[in-house]
Amino acid sequence: MLDGSLDDRAALLNDRYKHHAATEVLRRALNDPDLGRVTLVSSFGSESVVLLHMVSFVAPGTPVLFIDTQMLFPETLDYQLEVSEKLKLTNVQVVRALDSEVALNDPDGTLHQFSTDSCCDLRKTIPLERELGKFDAWITGRKRFQGGERQELQFFEAEPPARLRINPLAHWRKEDVQDYMAENNLPRHPLVAKGYASIGCAPCTSPVKPGEDPRAGRWRGSQKTECGIHFIGGKMVRAGANS
């Protein structure tokens, strides 16, 4: 792999791929020895099917990490199976907290009621980090139009201490996402039709009203906006719709 700091490696890769479209960034990144072992992390949420579809014809054997918090909507679990089968994804790996961790920290399943951060840490952040430790880079669906710190998002970025993130859709507009799903006749998450614009765990997700931010239905009534897998060194690096 490339020598130098993570930031230097990200800068070199961004220069290498700056004129490529999303599909080519993904295709080449999955075969670039300078990136090492790569995985896609997917929530199988409202927009996830775009990257899953791209992976399915570029490299269907790519490891896809799906975090099952054991508090997801039944519709999400059904959708995950439907999409995986339809797209013939052959290496979807379900990531969960260990039974012993749940038994110790949330034996009655009520942790989310008084500490959503602790619940997300237990059921999302820790299990995902355990699996991501096996990889050198991971693919995300982050996009510039989602605002916040994403407005200057590049295809590649550093995730200290030792990983890179790949954002093939960084330059896409919201219309591009919808057009891609329509043109490829991709299945939509069933909760989208019921007003859910950003879909997480059932106890902490609600429909959004017309004109509301797409993530207004996540942890409604609290200041919380992210689950924790979108932080680097305690700093939020993802914000916006359907992270």
Rank of each mutant, 00 (worst) to 15 (best):
V83T: 02
S84K: 06
H112L: 07
A239Y: 09
A193N: 13
D136F: 08
G4L: 01
E47M: 06
H230D: 10
A11M: 08
L98V: 01
H230W: 07
A10M: 07
A202H: 08
K134W: 06
I166N: 00
G234S: 04
Q151K: 10
K209I: 07
A182N: 13
L6G: 08
L65C: 04
T140I: 11
H171I: 13
I166Q: 06
L6C: 12
P107K: 05
S115D: 15
A158W: 04
A202M: 13
L35V: 01
S243M: 13
D213I: 00
V49P: 03
G211W: 07
T76A: 00
C227M: 13
R215T: 04
S46P: 03
H189A: 01
G45T: 03
F44I: 03
T225P: 07
A10V: 07
D99M: 09
S43P: 00
I126D: 11
D117G: 04
S118I: 00
L2D: 11
Y17V: 11
L186I: 06
D32E: 07
C201P: 02
P127N: 13
R215H: 07
V41D: 00
A202G: 07
N31R: 12
V192F: 02
L128P: 08
D32H: 04
L52S: 10
R188T: 04
I67K: 05
D68E: 07
G240P: 04
N91I: 01
L153F: 11
D106S: 08
A197S: 10
D99A: 11
S206P: 01
P161A: 01
N167Y: 09
E175D: 15
Y17H: 15
V95H: 09
V64G: 06
T116D: 10
V25R: 05
K194D: 08
C227A: 11
L122D: 05
V25M: 02
E75A: 07
W172E: 07
P63S: 11
L191Q: 01
F73E: 05
R238S: 14
P190A: 00
E24H: 11
Y17P: 11
D34H: 15
K18A: 08
S56G: 11
Q93P: 01
Q93D: 01
R215D: 05
